[in-house]
Design a protein around this nucleic acid. Structure first.
Length: 494
DNA sequence: GCGATATCAGGGTT
DNA sequence: CAACCCTGATATCG
């Protein structure tokens, strides 16, 4: 319960952060965190050793400030965080958490061992390098070694999708095994600490290592059935994996990366909204019809990150004259993250990602056959999901910034992925999902096309099953007993 | 064109 | 309150 409240709060903070990003600010992370800090929107402000409520092993962060806000690591820049405890005789520091930036590549093949360097004795630019001193964090690590208390370890890793930034992974609790002093390249003394992961914790950093290995050689993936079940229909292969039982694959279907529309489904009565931009469309450009439709601001920031949920997102279409690098075509650019379809323990086939996914990131559309009448058939995990977009608006209106935008949906859109579909047909239901669906329209030759696109609701660590809320059951529809396991589980779904 | 390096504006804790 | 610190975005160089 408490965990849940914390998670929602963190998710809420993310939204605020994102809308800050939407401004033209540099260091939006700092600005957003300053706003939140000054409004006391943060958790776990009291430092503690051991786990922090609301943060699970494997959770990922994209900024140091995010970890400050949830109380995982209170230092905005320093690698060692510690608290002062009153000992028998005197006050002494104890380490609470460390961030390993990976600058000192320890070539540690063993993901449970970390060789960590002390801080101080700065060797960069104007300062002369000097010996590190046994003070502050260094002393705290030394004391923690003596007392044998647990230290949280956060691994900083390079983000494969944007090489200039880093992703931080909470890798659980470690204890310090030994410390020594050695000569750095500068000739000065630096402290070194051997820090070992406590046993019995679920994998986090090790998962990343495994994924890296699979990317190098797909055949090293245990339980691999197909290298690419899309048969090159997508630009990124989607592996089919079963390391649970002997089933060799889901019921037969044809992979289709887009939506197949029946004639009646084009919303051709809508007024044309395509833009006349010559370059990439700019947020706030009053001359851009697509931006105006979106309320004047781009619905996306950065590399296709949705700022907030809306009743409808208006994207630039194939016939918009703006350049191909226009940021307003997110849902039309195909898969961006490396996905795999895998056999779950008790819910048939499911979908998960090898890559970490930042909150708001586009994952995939729901492909299939679009009709304007409900398709009969059983709902199950064999891919015959029925998808009614008229209810999207109701489901997500609560979180929309722009409530006065026109929204004109004449038919209930139903997409069937029973016979044809893409990866989305494998996504299972959860009452506490990590993705949500967002209606998106774009124009092509004066015809308006409606799509449903999935975006990450929060940061999603690698190999976490992707789920969405199928919605509340209606009369006349079959109910399925829900196995999502969430504490907020409604017990059943459509 | 890319990776490595420089520069710059920063924030929280002590 | 200034010093400390394994920041993060952008510009520049090789």
């Amino acid at each position: 319960m408490r965990f849940d409240a914390l998670r929602r709060k963190v998710g809420q903070l993310e939204d605020v952060k994102d809308s800050q990003h939407n401004g033209n600010a540099k260091r939006a992370d700092l600005k957003a965190s300053a706003i939140l800090m000054s409004n006391s929107i943060r958790t776990n402000t009291k430092k503690r050793t051991g786990h922090v409520p609301g943060v699970e092993i494997g959770d990922i962060f994209f900024f140091r400030m995010e970890m400050c806000l949830v109380g995982l690591h209170a230092q905005s820049m320093a690698g060692i965080d510690y608290l002062i405890v009153r000992g028998d005789r005197e006050e002494e520091p104890l380490a609470t958490s460390i961030v390993s930036s990976g600058y000192y590549d320890n070539a540690a093949d063993d993901t449970d061992i970390l060789i960590y360097s002390g801080h101080g004795g700065s060797s960069n630019k104007n300062k002369e390098a000097s010996d590190q001193k046994l003070v502050r964090g260094n002393l705290a690590l030394e004391r923690s070694l003596q007392k044998g208390n647990e230290v949280r370890v956060i691994r900083g890793l390079k983000d494969a999708n944007s090489p200039t930034t880093k992703i931080y992974v909470y890798d659980g609790l470690y204890t310090i095994q030994e410390s020594w002093v050695e000569k750095a390249k500068t000739g000065c003394n630096i402290f070194k600490y051997k820090i070992v992961r406590m046993s019995g914790q679920p994998g986090a950093f090790s998962v990343w290592k495994s994924v890296a290995q699979w990317k190098e050689s797909v055949s090293s993936r245990v339980g691999l059935i197909l290298h690419d079940l899309t048969l090159a229909a997508e630009t990124i292969p989607v592996a089919l994996v079963n390391d649970v039982d002997g089933e060799r694959g889901p019921t037969c279907f044809t992979y289709l990366a887009s939506v197949r529309y029946s004639k009646s489904f084009k919303l051709s009565h809508q007024t044309s909204f395509g833009c006349n931009c010559r370059n990439a469309c700019q947020s706030g450009d009053e001359n851009c019809a697509c931006m105006t439709k979106n309320g004047g601001q781009t619905p996306y920031i950065g590399n296709g990150v949705l700022v907030c949920r809306k009743p409808l997102v208006y994207e630039c279409g194939p016939t918009c004259p703006c350049t191909a690098n226009c940021k307003n075509r997110v849902s039309q650019t195909g898969l961006k993250v490396h996905l795999e379809v895998f056999k779950t323990k008790d819910r048939g086939w499911g979908l998960r990602s090898w890559d970490p996914i930042r909150a708001g990131t586009f994952i995939c559309i729901y492909a299939g056959e679009a009709t304007n009448k409900a398709i009969s058939g059983e709902v199950g995990d064999s891919g015959d999901y029925v998808f009614d977009t008229t209810r999207v608006y109701d489901s997500f209106r609560w979180n929309c910034e722009h409530t006065n935008e026109e929204y004109d949906m004449p038919y209930p859109l139903v997409i069937s992925a029973k016979n044809v579909g893409n990866v989305a047909r494998f996504m299972n239901h959860s009452c506490e999902p990590n993705t949500f669906w967002q209606p998106v329209v774009y124009e092509n030759n004066s015809e308006t096309y409606l799509n449903v696109a999935f975006f990450a609701m929060r940061h999603i660590p690698p190999m976490t099953e992707l789920t969405y809320d199928y919605g509340t059951p209606r009369a006349g529809h079959g109910r399925m007993r829900c196995l999502c396991g969430s504490t907020r589980c409604k017990g059943y779904f459509v």
